[in-house]
Design a protein around this nucleic acid. Structure first.
Lengths: 197, 197
DNA sequence: GTCTATACACCGATAGAC
DNA sequence: GTCTATCGGTGTATAGAC
């Protein structure tokens, strides 16, 4: 039971190899540009110029490919958040990461898929909890440093910020703008009061 | 070109009839419980105990059925919002409608589908803009009545509230709870200050 | 490692009878 | 109004050759 022969006994390609990454790249692009309905083994193969059969050499099922795509994406996102947290203006940079997050379309595709794919839901939960933890730590430290207090706890503030950041990108892509500028101004003011202007 | 013979010339069943509603009911249930992948004409027919062919008597395409399902749902939701707005505690009741909104699963399925189905995206935009308008009007009135001012405009507040309400239900269904109670307390305090405790 | 070939199921949509 | 029957296409996944 090594990297190339997983539980089923069927021969499998090595995770992390060039083709493996290319398939995740393809899956991500298809999901973003065409949506879940177009995410098929044939389409992924076509996207990266290989035969359909090869997809099943690297992934046991399409669900597994989808889960791996999300995992790679969320690990990159968590790395960006940790990097932002270690910067000179951690809260502002974390906000920027959230606002310039992975395309809102991609997020909604994964959210919808998570209903059907249990393993994906588990990964989504893990990502949300980890990113919130990072945000809460950064907020707590920054507020202490600036001697600032708020009506709501750092955890509540993190939830509010994540929610509205996602809404701003999602609605923005749909062409909705009511209230958007007002919220951005509010966030900017708050960051100024934290000394991260 | 009457109700029973639309553009294509193919004979069509009347919108609003018993079967028509039954099909939307079925589509809604399938979307909620099994996700977009299971929403097929055969599955809808099976769900309500008719033959597959009949689905295409009432709807020209599956996309049309999906759009109609969302339209009926969003019209019901707007009616609930308007009713809440006319009550004694409009802002609190609107918040309750948003929190006990249509299953968050259903929302994410429609959001994902809206990428592929242009007509659905149009309906989603209309719904979001209308519901925000109702919320802003209610908030503006209530704040005036209570003589309360906030750092953010009513439009910004409405966007914040909608975003976090959706996040609370979505994350709640996934089993995530960090920061949730804090936000609920904050909202309760705010409603108290509006005289809607 | 990568391929050809293929089994098998299900999908959307339509023709035309009753 | 509702049905039977069906076309043409596409999906997941596997067997086994090179």
């Amino acid at each position: 039971m090594d990297a190339t022969t997983q539980q089923s006994g069927r021969r499998m390609g090595p995770p992390g190899s060039e083709n493996w990454h290319a398939m995740l790249d393809g899956a991500e692009a298809i999901l973003r540009d065409e949506g879940h309905a177009a995410l098929t083994s044939r389409r992924v193969a076509e996207q990266i110029g290989v035969k359909q059969r090869l997809v099943y050499y690297y992934f046991r099922t399409m669900d597994e490919l989808i889960i791996e795509t999300f995992k790679r994406l969320s690990e990159r996102e968590l790395a960006r958040l940790n990097q932002a947290r270690a910067s000179a203006k951690p809260v502002r940079e974390i906000w920027d990461v959230c606002i310039h997050t992975t395309d809102a379309r991609l997020v909604s595709q994964f959210m919808a898929l998570a209903h059907r794919i249990e393993g994906l839901a588990k990964e989504v939960v893990h990502f949300v909890e980890e990113s919130r933890r990072i945000q809460v730590e950064a907020l707590t430290e920054a507020m202490e440093r600036a001697g600032k207090t708020t009506r709501v706890t750092p955890a509540g503030l993190a939830l509010l910020a994540t929610s509205v950041a996602l809404a701003l990108t999602r609605e923005g892509q749909l062409g909705i703008s009511a209230g958007h500028e007002d919220v951005r101004v509010l966030v900017d003011e708050f960051l100024g009061e934290l000394g991260e202007g």
